[in-house]
């Protein structure tokens, strides 16, 4: 027995039937033309796909770091304010930041388990999102966490020590780094 509620609704899908024509008045009298206002809407499907040529620009070294098992952050050299994300310029001084190496261990600051998601991530549900805090950094980093049971979510996960792991075959995406419980 599962404690999940029993479904009472058939899943809706979007395969429709192709219509090559629809009924239309044969005599185009004023009444017939008026009756067109009662017609059901005609709905068509338009696929749309694009390949973007997207540059990471000044943030590129961060992705190169992940490909080489290095987690970079950004630091304002004068104030020491440190972002756990790539950021070319500091939001307080307006000056250029330097790259710094972040520790590969941190703590879970906040988390969720996504049981649904955007279309592109639906096949990966349930997945765990975490905001990670690092010693020496003033801000957080968003990432995925694996190695916990997504059906056993608990506030106790907050504060948990996690360590960074890296994909061996880089995709040059922020998911090239992910987090696992440090004690596992």
């Amino acid at each position: 027995m599962s404690d999940k509620p029993i479904k009472r609704k058939m899943e809706e899908t979007e395969e429709g039937t192709t219509l090559f024509n629809v009924p239309f008045p044969t005599e185009l009298t004023p009444e017939a033309l008026q009756s067109l206002k009662q017609m059901a809407p005609i709905i068509v499907k338009d696929p749309y796909s694009i390949t973007y040529i997207h540059s990471y620009g000044q943030d590129s070294p961060w992705f190169a770091g992940l490909a080489n098992k290095v987690l970079l952050g950004s630091r304002q050299p004068e104030t020491g304010y440190t972002y756990a994300t790539p950021r070319g310029h500091d939001m307080y001084t307006g000056k250029e930041n330097d790259w710094v190496v972040l520790p590969q261990e941190g703590k879970v600051h906040a988390f969720t388990v996504c049981h649904f998601g955007s279309e592109s991530f639906l096949p990966e549900t349930p997945f765990v999102l975490v905001l990670v805090e690092f010693e020496g950094a003033n801000t957080l980093l968003l990432g995925r966490m694996i190695g916990v049971d997504p059906n056993d979510a608990s506030l106790d996960w907050i504060g948990m020590k996690v360590k960074a792991k890296f994909r061996r075959l880089s995709k040059f995406k922020p998911t090239d780094v992910y987090f696992v419980p440090a004690e596992a």
Binding site: A110, F111, T112, F116, R144, K173
Partner: peptide, 17 residues
């Protein structure tokens, strides 16, 4: 977005905190 772009997920992280 590429980490698992989903607004309900973002807000749920605020909730746990």
């Amino acid at each position: 977005y590429p980490v698992g772009g989903f607004y309900s997920g973002y807000y749920a992280m605020m909730v746990t905190r």
